[in-house]
Each structure stands twice: as C-alpha cells, then as structure tokens.
Simulated scan of single mutants.
Amino acid sequence: MKKLNELQAGNVGKVQSIGGDVHFQSRITSIGLTPGSIVEIVQNKRKRPLLIYSRDSLIAINRKDAELIEMKGN
C-alpha cells in the first residue's frame, strides 16, 4: 500500500484507510473520500496540492493531508 501523496499523475487507486484525528476524518469523508472509493491522480507536483478526481469531482488536497490517506493500487 502507498500513501496518496506517493502516487503519480495518471495512477488510479482505491482508498484503503484514512488516518488522522476525528476532525480530519470527518472533513475528508464529507467531500466524498471514503474507504473503497476510486481515485485518479490528476496532478502531483512537488510543493503543490494534489489534484485528484473521485466521484465526478475534481478535488485539491494538501500534501500533509494526503499523507494520511492509504491507497491500494488497481
């Protein structure tokens, strides 16, 4: 398993687990990222937020938060 911030642009994976505190988990699940959801990495450039596509939405996630999301590659 890899962390979300370790995937390259064009990779597709499934959210395996979400770490962090309860506030972070609530915030990230409210935007549709839940365990089992499919995510495509649109952009992953250093020192920039990650752009991901999931559930018909383009989402920007900061790098620190992306480290808390464990992914399973397809």
Rank of each mutant, 00 (worst) to 15 (best):
M1I: 11
K2Q: 11
K3C: 09
L4E: 00
E6V: 11
Q8W: 13
Q8A: 14
Q8T: 09
A9N: 06
A9F: 13
G10Q: 11
G10Y: 15
N11M: 14
N11W: 12
G13T: 02
G13I: 02
G13M: 04
Q16T: 03
Q16H: 13
I18S: 04
G20P: 02
G20A: 05
F24P: 00
F24A: 03
Q25G: 05
Q25K: 15
S26M: 09
S30T: 03
I31L: 10
T34P: 00
T34G: 01
T34A: 07
P35A: 02
P35Y: 08
S37V: 15
V39I: 15
E40T: 12
E40F: 08
I41L: 04
V42G: 03
Q43S: 13
Q43M: 12
N44Q: 04
K45F: 09
R46L: 12
K47T: 06
K47Q: 13
P49F: 04
L51T: 13
L51W: 04
Y53P: 00
S54W: 11
S54M: 12
D56M: 04
D56W: 00
D56C: 03
I59D: 00
I59P: 00
I59H: 01
A60H: 07
I61V: 14
I61R: 01
N62D: 11
R63E: 05
K64Y: 09
K64C: 05
D65E: 01
D65F: 04
I69V: 14
I69K: 06
I69P: 01
E70Y: 15
E70H: 13
M71A: 05
M71E: 00
K72T: 05
K72G: 01
N74A: 15
N74G: 12
